[in-house]
């Protein structure tokens, strides 16, 4: 017998699979939006450094001056410099956005969790009340609350916005809690005597945080938009408190005199901020849902 019909070749050499190309870390992340938002936020926080003057100083001789060397973005009908107002006003607008979103999130989480953990009748009652709350037009609610809370201030307007925008998030929290509440670790924590807020804070919130995170960002956005709308309509902050919204409330006069910068400049800042927040929010939403999609 001859053996040379068979050749022992051993394991065939295969080229090592090409290393999977690492996606650059910034892939799919809203870098541009984040950067622009960062510039706006930093500019508003640090505006004291690069703006020497008082933003509410009224230079009546230069009222409604067009943008130029002296006034970068022009002045409003009361002679205030729009460039410095933008940054100082942005502080208040952003503050109201964050505060309003914090209040609405707190209300939504507590109410949603109570409703999710409660027996069926209480749950049904709470949800019916929520629907009822939704059925009153938001604008009227705001006017009511404003009237009850008295003179508008930054705090009261954040409270008003927070108290009128919690409903949809509360529904999401409720659904999430309903799914989580019978899981083993919650039962275990409860049987060991954990109180409602302990379980909520330690077990429930970490689990549904990612699914409401984008709603929180969206709430910041809608709170900023709501503040500007209210101030524009004259039921929000008064003219003396500089915000993007109260700057826009001068636009009726500006329309008559054709002073476009009074309308366009604060509005562009407002819309840019809202847009950045939206793209951050939708990035967070996609990040939270990433597992479910096979795309």
């Amino acid at each position: 017998m001859k053996d040379d019909g068979f050749v022992i070749v051993g394991v065939r050499e295969t080229p090592p699979p090409p290393a999977p190309r690492r996606e650059p870390w910034y892939r799919g992340k809203p870098l541009f939006a984040g950067g622009v938002l960062g510039v706006i936020v930093l500019g508003c926080l640090l505006c004291g450094l690069f703006i020497p003057g008082d933003p509410s100083y009224m230079d009546l001789a230069n009222a409604s001056a067009a943008p130029g060397r002296a006034f970068l973005f022009g002045t409003d009908t009361m002679g205030r410099d729009i460039f410095s107002m933008i940054w100082y006003g942005g502080r208040v607008s952003l503050l109201i956005g964050v505060a309003g979103a914090a209040i609405s999130t707190a209300v939504a989480v507590v109410l949603g969790a109570v409703s999710g953990c409660a027996p069926a009748w209480l749950d049904a009652l709470l949800m019916r009340l929520t629907e009822l709350f939704l059925s009153v037009p938001n604008l009227l609610l705001v006017v009511f609350l404003q009237a009850i809370l008295g003179e508008a201030s930054v705090l009261s307007i954040s409270l008003v916005i927070g108290l009128t925008s919690w409903t949809s998030m509360a529904k999401v929290v409720r659904t999430e809690v309903r799914q989580l509440r019978s899981s083993e670790y919650v039962v275990a924590a409860r049987s060991m005597g954990g109180g409602f807020f302990h379980i909520l804070w330690r077990h429930l919130i970490p689990n549904f945080l990612s699914s409401i995170m984008f709603m929180v960002v969206m709430n910041v956005r809608s709170a900023i938009a709501a503040e500007s709308t209210l101030s524009f309509m004259g039921i929000g902050l008064p003219l003396e408190v500089v915000t993007w919204g109260s700057m826009l409330s001068l636009s009726e006069k500006a329309l008559l005199s054709g002073a476009w910068w009074i309308i366009l400049v604060p509005g562009i800042f407002l819309v840019t901020t809202l847009l950045c927040l939206t793209s951050l929010g939708s990035y967070l939403r996609k990040a939270a849902n990433r597992k479910e999609r096979n795309l």
Binding site: S228, L248, S251, I263, G267, L270, V271, T278
Partner: peptide
Amino acid sequence: SCIPEFWLSLV
């Protein structure tokens, strides 16, 4: 969808 309606009206 980001533009507040009052500002859109103004513009």
